[in-house]
Amino acid sequence: MLELRLVQGSLLKKVVDAIRDLVNDASFDCSATGFSLQAMDSSHVALVALLLRSEGFDHYRCDRNISMGMNLNNMAKMLRCAGNDDIITFKGDDGSDTVSFMFESPTQDKISDFEMKLMDIDSERLGIPEAKYQAIVRMPSTEFARICKDLGSIGDTVVISVTKEGVKFSTRGDIGSANIVCRQNTDVDKPEQATTVEMNDPVSLTFALRYMNSFTKATPLSNQVTISLSSELPVVVEYKIAEMGYVRFYLAPKIEE
């Protein structure tokens, strides 16, 4: 028996919208720790890891660990039927091939029930070790989204370089080239507008903009994004979900031949 209640139901919509561009089908895992997912895109060069901690839910019951294969577009179709202020309750049963969503309006005058079919998914689970990164950049998530979108109209790849001067995003394409430098800036009215660059070693890595642009679908989840870079590791683009957990995207850098 599994029952999760989230008063801020719109959060679940945002989570699904954040990852469905990258992954079509995914296996959601439920345990005492929380509601989580790990999935790779179809070409296996990017990975998404989601965690919504049990403490973040208004009600959380999970009698035993359970994995549920879901199609994210179908999930989005169901969740789109919920109002933005609705309370969402998600229910599952051991051995059942369906799950259910219940949407309650804040005034309790409308209650909707949706049942969704589960899928069999052969998912490959990877162990992601804790790592020390050469550089960690924190910046407003909207700024990062803007940069990826702008550069994506010029080139296919972005070179992210971190020096003590700041972080530089560069691209090159048929029509020309572009460089955007963001300097550390903590002199702002609100902490979410800050850009901070934590550098242990300078680092410069190349990534496919198509994936970076897909990661920015998570922008509505968080005001800030954290980009962790190391030459030996996939980049981690993390959107923290207040009081609940995170969505982390991993992308392998392109390598010189």
Binding site: M40, E124, A252, K254, E256, E257
Partner: peptide, 14 residues
């Protein structure tokens, strides 16, 4: 084009 390794190049399967 620059080659791009897969995730399993970096992270081991469970």
């Amino acid at each position: 084009a620059m080659p791009q390794p897969r995730m399993t190049f970096y992270f081991r399967r469970f």
